[in-house]
């Protein structure tokens, strides 16, 4: 299954690069929206069938916020450390890390600061999403289920949620969704704050 995921992304990327007519680009956005809604519906049905899940989530309560908190801190800290090695200022690498995988928004918010940093934020967060998709099954298997949510960051509420649901339990999928929502709402707050430090 991990191979199928990798191949889908790789073959898709090659198709897009080599053959895809550029005027179809906008159309792919619509296809993704529809596909995503379908998948979320299926994931919801799966979660709903496991009646204990919702009770378990209730039991966790506000502790559920510990997951996005650790993911957020880790993302920013990791970007600071690795950004230092590739010669970036702390405010720049921190702000890019605070994009949490949401490439469009983090790039847009950094355009005024510098177009180079904006492009870097875009590419970093694109790579983060692709790496998350590829690494998630392995992390879920060998490290842990909550850890598998970590690479996804903000995307855990949409694009990577189906993969979380596939490789972990319905409970972790809900925690992942909540974590994605929390991190997504933090992106527009944290990126401008950190870049101005």
């Amino acid at each position: 299954m991990t191979w199928i995921i990798m191949l889908s992304v790789i073959i898709g990327t090659l198709t897009g690069y080599l053959f895809f007519p550029s005027h179809w680009y906008d159309f792919t956005g619509l296809v993704i929206d529809i596909g995503l809604c379908l998948l979320l519906l299926f994931v919801g049905m799966d979660i709903g069938k496991q009646k204990n899940t919702l009770l378990e989530i209730k039991k966790i309560g506000l502790g559920i916020l510990a997951v996005p908190l650790m993911i957020g801190l880790g993302s920013i800290f990791g970007a600071l450390v690795f950004g230092h090695f590739v010669g970036l200022n702390y405010n720049e690498s921190g702000a890019i890390g605070a994009g949490f995988g949401w490439y469009t928004l983090s790039a847009i918010m950094l355009v005024d600061y510098s177009s180079e940093i904006s492009a870097l934020a875009f590419l970093t967060n694109v790579i983060r999403e692709v790496m998350a998709i590829l690494m998630l099954p392995l992390i879920a298997k060998y490290i842990g289920h909550y850890e598998a949510v970590a690479p996804c960051g903000a995307t855990a509420m949409d694009t990577t949620l189906p993969i979380i649901a596939r490789y972990t339990t319905p409970k972790v999928a809900i925690v992942g969704f909540v974590s994605g929502v929390v991190l997504s709402s933090l992106v527009p707050l944290l990126v401008p704050i950190i870049i101005n430090l």
């Binding site: 889908s8 073959i11 898709g12 990327t13 897009g16 895809f20 550029s22 792919t28 692709v130 694009t159």
Partner: peptide, 14 residues
């Protein structure tokens, strides 16, 4: 999921 990842790939490549 496979369809979605394929189209996401197309967007990246294009």
């Amino acid at each position: 999921l496979i369809g979605l990842l394929f189209v996401m790939g197309i967007r990246l490549g294009a």
